[in-house]
Computed example of a mutant assay.
Amino acid sequence: MKVFISSLITGMEAERAAAKHAVELLGHEAITAEEFGARASSPQVACLSGIREADLVVLILGPRYGARQGAGVSATHEEVLEARNRKPLLVYAQSGMDAEPEQAALVQEIGGWESGLFRDVFESAEDLGRKLPSAIYRFGVSHASAPLDPTALRSRALALFPPIERGYYQGGVVLQLALAAGPDTTVLRPAEMEAQSLLDNMHQQALFGRPAIFNRSIGMEASFDGDARVVSQGERRSDGASVSLWPNGDMLISLPVPPAEGSMGFSVVLQENVAEQLAAALGYAAWLLDHIDRTERVTHVVPSVRLVGEHAGAWRTRAEHMASPNGMQVPWRQGEHQEPVLLSQAHQVRQALTMDAQRIIEDLVVLLRRKWVN
């Protein structure tokens, strides 16, 4: 395993040496900027390439932020931004430090990430050297699984969507989030899939999570569809919400998109409503994955989204609709608007579901809009 060590270099020499020793003690390869040697690329490109090459990033934060680079942030901060949606992170912050304002803001930014990374504090280089080996070892054990196959993972995400039958969705527009989890492994045994505790927790989060994805005034049903555990509300053949979970961590979440008001019989898709439902679906998916796989056997995911609605009309922003609720053009379609969309790099590290959710939502909404409008 290749481990990139990210921190300021000047003033953090002892901590970096301790981290390097911990990595090599376990038989892994440490990637450090000090050992890059002469390269044709700039130090910035070399460091960011080192992160892309690594399997794990160890981030060490002391009191100093460092000089701002061309991107407007310090070199370490830029490494954080590069790693946060691509690589697993082990974060260590020095305890009791009198941090510079920019460094305090960076620590707060990292601390605001809801989940998906290991965080700890250290008092000295020696303390860091004692803590790191066990953390790296636990990471290696929890991620020891079959090799990741991004192409197969992408195909599996698309295969999670059920066929669209004419008249299947009667009640308007439904957003469907398919999430394929990888490497492909068994996360839940049959007995765990049937456990009442799993069902209770899925119901609880669906009703009372922030945001909730189920309507508290509507009853819920539980069933199995093949190997998938399904919890649903309303008619699954209309606009009811539902969650399907497979033993390998794959899931399909369907949520109705609230219709726009005052559209004179036309079904208008509001971009903000789509984004809100996608955010709710992603949040629930991240929670469910953490709930069923606390040791993180799943390291990567492929999210794919589609909007289903035979009689859907124009795509508009809320401001556009309020300005002219009846002045719209409905494009002529043959079903292509219901095809699923994927990110340009379909597979994402699992952490991205929480650490980079906003970017994922923004990009997927843009791709959905292109399908709907064109």
Rank of each mutant, 00 (worst) to 15 (best):
L270K: 07
W372Q: 15
L8W: 02
R316N: 00
A352H: 00
L255Q: 08
Y137Q: 13
G172L: 07
S217A: 14
I31K: 07
E261K: 14
N215V: 05
H291G: 00
K371T: 02
I9F: 05
G27C: 08
I31A: 10
E339P: 00
E165F: 08
D184K: 11
A99S: 14
E34H: 12
H28S: 00
G66M: 08
A280D: 09
H143R: 15
R189N: 03
E235D: 14
V174A: 03
L288F: 09
R119H: 09
Q233E: 15
L282N: 08
Q271L: 10
W332A: 15
A228P: 00
L81I: 05
F139V: 13
G70N: 10
R119W: 06
P340I: 08
E336Y: 06
H337G: 02
K2R: 15
L278P: 04
V23H: 12
S344T: 13
P340D: 03
R306N: 06
I361R: 13
V3M: 06
Q69K: 14
R350H: 08
M322K: 13
A319R: 15
P247K: 01
L106H: 10
R229L: 05
D98N: 14
A181G: 03
Q329L: 13
I136G: 01
S242E: 12
A195S: 14
E261D: 13
P163T: 05
V349R: 08
Q277L: 07
E15F: 11
R369E: 12
A314Y: 02
Q205H: 15
Y169V: 15
G226M: 11
K371C: 02
D250Y: 04
A46S: 14
F36G: 01
L289G: 07
P211E: 09
A125C: 04
L61Q: 04
M251A: 12
K371M: 07
Q351R: 15
H321G: 04
Y137R: 14
H291I: 00
L177V: 01
R216K: 12
S232K: 15
G50T: 07
P150N: 04
Q338T: 10
H291R: 11
F139S: 09
A222T: 06
R39E: 11
S95E: 14
F161S: 11
E53H: 09
V174C: 07
I5Q: 11
